[in-house]
Simulated scan of single mutants.
Amino acid sequence: MPLTKMDREILKLMQQDATITLGELAHRTGQSASSAQRRLQKLREDKVILRDVSVVDPKKVGANVSMLVEVELERDRPELLPPFMRWLVETPEVQEAWVTSGRGDYTLVVLARSVEHFDELADRMMELNPNIRKFTTSVVLKTLKRTLAVHVE
């Protein structure tokens, strides 16, 4: 679906604040409320907008430590991949997971209450996933930027 200039403007505004009213969205994009609603609905139907979420400050809910974890798997054990994928999906501390090139096969963003909490999580990860060859962890010392916004220029 090719995006119009108006679609892109709606996407920018919705990424800034998804609680914006239809009236305000219409006003800020220079269209009628019904037109803004139709465009917004079409963006959702076409899966350009996947879902609307609230961005939560991790530290205010007890997730005090952020880590980047590179996981390297045993390549000769493909039958063990589904349990690892299930573990990724079912583990709430894993905020994001990517299949990557480079040193590791997967890179994870993990939020934990403490280093000890992460250590317990890592022990469970290794116990439940025998195809993990090794993993390396980088502790985030300072967050300089955190966003879910996608550039739509």
Rank of each mutant, 00 (worst) to 15 (best):
P78K: 07
V110L: 01
A33F: 10
V61C: 08
V115H: 04
A36R: 04
T91A: 10
A36G: 06
D46L: 13
T91Y: 02
E93C: 03
L108F: 00
T100L: 00
L11M: 08
R124S: 06
V89R: 14
R124Y: 02
V48Y: 09
L108I: 01
K59W: 10
V48A: 03
A112F: 02
G62S: 07
R86T: 13
I49K: 09
E96G: 01
K59R: 15
M126C: 06
T137R: 06
A97V: 06
L144I: 09
M125E: 01
K142N: 10
E127K: 14
N129V: 09
V109M: 05
E90Q: 11
R124N: 08
V55E: 11
G104A: 10
K5D: 15
V115A: 08
M85T: 09
D46W: 14
L22G: 13
L11W: 05
D46E: 15
D57R: 14
L141D: 03
E127C: 04
G62K: 08
R28D: 14
G23S: 11
L111R: 05
E93F: 00
V152L: 05
K12Q: 13
R146Y: 03
R38Y: 13
E96F: 01
D57Y: 10
Y106R: 00
D52F: 15
S54C: 06
P58F: 04
A18Y: 15
E79G: 05
M14S: 09
R28T: 12
L108C: 01
P2T: 15
A33V: 14
T143K: 12
R124V: 06
K142H: 11
